[in-house]
Design a protein around this nucleic acid. Structure first.
Lengths: 199, 199
DNA sequence: GTTATAAGTAAATAAACATTTACTTATAAA
DNA sequence: TTTATAAGTAAATGTTTATTTACTTATAAC
């Protein structure tokens, strides 16, 4: 039996991510993908059931998984609130800034009905993704360190600015004039922390 | 000369928004749109040059314009920082919550290369959209009332959570269990304000 | 070596797409 | 009324799409 070409599978995934990031999800076609990977369209179907299957696997395995791992590196839910938040912010920003393709696909997760389904699935099974962060927040609420809000609300208050800042990082990169420096990021995180602390 | 059917033009726009919001930008086709409006595909081309033209006009006229108007209603850049922020948050949340289709298209503006172009155009010509808000922020920075950051960074810190909360509002709406109440929103705005105030 | 078999390919297929062609209709102005 | 004309339509066009069909190839096991 002829062995699988594992290189090809990796190439399919990374080139698919590149096309989605640079030309948009709407411009990812199976034939364009095959051509750029230098394989026959049929070969994609040997590895993925169909386009939907490819996108969902791309999203779950390649993006959500790697992203979570990067964000949680060096993070410990028993850290002080400020220290933990700074770690999470730094990790998030560093990973996304260095993985624009993954960041773009995460963004698509909010608007594409297809990816949104995959995203919800992964997130609704609570604790599957980012459970250490969930516990970290609940713990700090229980101990009265930060203001009490529903978990999703706390998440929005504490982390949505960092995503927006990554977006701006890329915008400014295109205009070759960077304002989102590490110092700015640290200051922003402090602002967010100050707002939610009790007293 | 036969007069234009102005109803049809309105219907094209509102049904296009509905399809994009409910089925995604990738599922908006000219033939589906024509069928749902009950007109011939050709008629769309009497009013718009092509699909790109339709999308950009939809985005600029229907969404960005109406959205800006709603957000600025009753807002005055000479308000106190806290009062102004609460007004902007309330207006933003109320408008987006009642105009899900517009909200969804705004989200697509971040991921679709096509709409992104339109979005950048509208925003780069600074002052064209939301200039009262820009002046409001700069003024409060100059007066030392809030911490000094580049304008885009301040915007991210102060307003990205409210978008995320709208997203969550709709998520919870689908699960028929609303947690994003007006009281929660007001509290969230206070958290954000507290964070950025000097002292 | 031979061979069975999964991995791979090139080219075809049918459906869906944006846009046009060739025609019809409603009405403002004469 | 008549009529010129822009507004409208139904159906076609050529292209692009996801997916398949019918074939070829590489290699593990014998």
């Amino acid at each position: 039996m002829r062995p699988k070409n594992l290189e090809a599978e990796k190439a399919i995934r990374s080139i698919a991510l590149r096309i989605i990031a640079e030309e948009g999800l709407e411009n990812l076609t199976m034939q364009k993908l095959a051509k750029e990977v230098n394989i026959s369209p049929r070969t994609i179907y040997l590895k993925y059931e169909n386009k939907e299957d490819l996108l969902i696997k791309l999203f779950i395995d390649e993006v959500l998984g790697a992203y979570e791992k990067a964000v949680l590196t060096g993070f410990d839910e028993e850290m002080s609130f400020s220290e933990g938040m700074q770690k999470l912010w730094t990790n998030t920003f560093q990973y996304l800034k260095n993985n624009r393709h993954a960041f773009m696909l995460l963004q698509h997760g909010k608007t594409s009905p297809l990816l949104n389904k995959a995203y919800q699935k992964a997130n609704i099974k609570q604790g599957q993704f980012f459970s250490p962060v969930h516990r970290f927040l609940m713990q700090n609420i229980d101990r009265g360190i930060i203001k009490k809000f529903p978990l999703d609300v706390s998440r929005a208050l504490l982390f949505s600015p960092v995503f927006d800042l990554v977006n701006e990082y890329f915008d400014y990169q295109e205009r070759e004039h960077q304002i989102i420096t590490e110092a700015v990021l640290t200051d922003c995180c402090s602002v967010v922390i100050k707002g939610i602390l009790n007293k």
